[in-house]
Simulated scan of single mutants.
Amino acid sequence: MKIHKKKRTYKRNIAKIGISFSILLIIGGIWQVIMEAKEMKMYTPVGEVLDINSHDMHLYRLGNGNNTIVFISGSGTPNSYTDFYYLQNELQQYAKTLSFDHAGFGWSKSTDSPRTVDNLVSDLHELFNKSNESPPYILVAHSLASLEAIRYAQVYPDEIQGIILLDGGSPQYYVNDLEIKSLILNRFSAILRVTGINRALGNIGIKLPFIGENIRYESLPEDIKNIDEAMYYKFIGNNSNLDVLKHINENAKIVIDNGYLQDIPLLILSSDSGNEWEKVQLELLNWSNDSTQRTIIDSKHYLHWSHKEIVVSEIVEFIKNISNNY
């Protein structure tokens, strides 16, 4: 008899815990929706918003000069303005700098157009046209954006003065990459976002994801931190990123099938992430006849934040070299 009572009590306690947890998740979800709406009203676009291929795209320009540097953010980066904030401010004395938000991130609206690499290139080319920018461009691409930068140079080789990859992967790496692991991380991040768990963790000082975006947050000025945090809470693990991840293998194959970059200058700045990643970086060397690779010791994947001064100096030197030869 006592055993049956203990079992009933145990089941009731489990039910109470489940109900309490569900209520907390509902409250967290409501909190997330309210705060998203509030933050998007508070933090209006810094720069311009243009109609590109039937959806709004955000563009931020800073600096002057004979060279034009275009920053391309990696997969899932919530906001390009905050991610390239330091680089744009430091490089504005050397060149005109541009950053933009991919569709569905930052101040750019989402689109129904699949996130194939050719559609990404089409968006960027149209952004240049609508903003009255003129080539040639130096593309600076982080992480997965290496595919976008290389593909742009394949389609519009005469518009590209050079390419700098910030811990980008090679097309050979991405064509074999297991998309499922990225998709699982995306869905996990989405659950944390929509339930408000991400926001709750942030309020006690725990910044996700674990791949290094917290390095950027800690390095930003206080007013820019607020924008970065709001963008992170709104976009991490969203469906726009999911669409990008679903096309990784396909996009890499398109790049591989369309050949190498011939003599377009290519600078590969790599994180210190072990022998396997070093092999991937060395694969990138073969994508141009004029290529250089450097591994930055003790750096992280977001090396433009973990070692931002070194990255700036490398970009400045790259500009000087190609300007003398162009």
Rank of each mutant, 00 (worst) to 15 (best):
H142N: 11
G274R: 09
Y174P: 01
I197K: 10
Y137N: 11
H301F: 06
N251T: 07
M231W: 04
I19N: 01
D290V: 13
N119K: 06
G212A: 15
T77Q: 06
H102F: 09
R115L: 01
F210R: 04
N214R: 10
L192G: 11
G162D: 04
W277K: 13
S80V: 05
I264Y: 01
A252V: 02
L124S: 01
Y233A: 12
D158Y: 08
N129P: 00
L165E: 03
V175Q: 14
A103K: 03
Y260V: 14
D167T: 10
E90F: 06
N67C: 11
E39V: 04
A141H: 00
S73M: 12
L50N: 08
F71P: 05
D177H: 10
A252R: 00
D223M: 08
S182T: 09
Q32W: 13
E317I: 01
I248V: 12
E283V: 07
G237T: 07
Q93E: 11
D112V: 02
I315P: 00
E278D: 12
S110E: 10
R199V: 03
I160H: 05
G202E: 12
V33F: 01
H301W: 07
N64W: 06
F21W: 06
L284S: 03
H304M: 13
S273R: 07
E179Y: 03
Y156E: 03
K181I: 14
K7C: 03
D243H: 06
I27H: 02
S122D: 15
H125Y: 15
A153I: 07
T195W: 10
T295K: 09
G168L: 08
T68V: 15
D243R: 04
H247N: 15
Q88M: 15
Q32D: 09
I256C: 07
G169P: 02
R61P: 00
G74Q: 00
A200G: 02
S240I: 02
L147V: 02
K308V: 05
L245H: 01
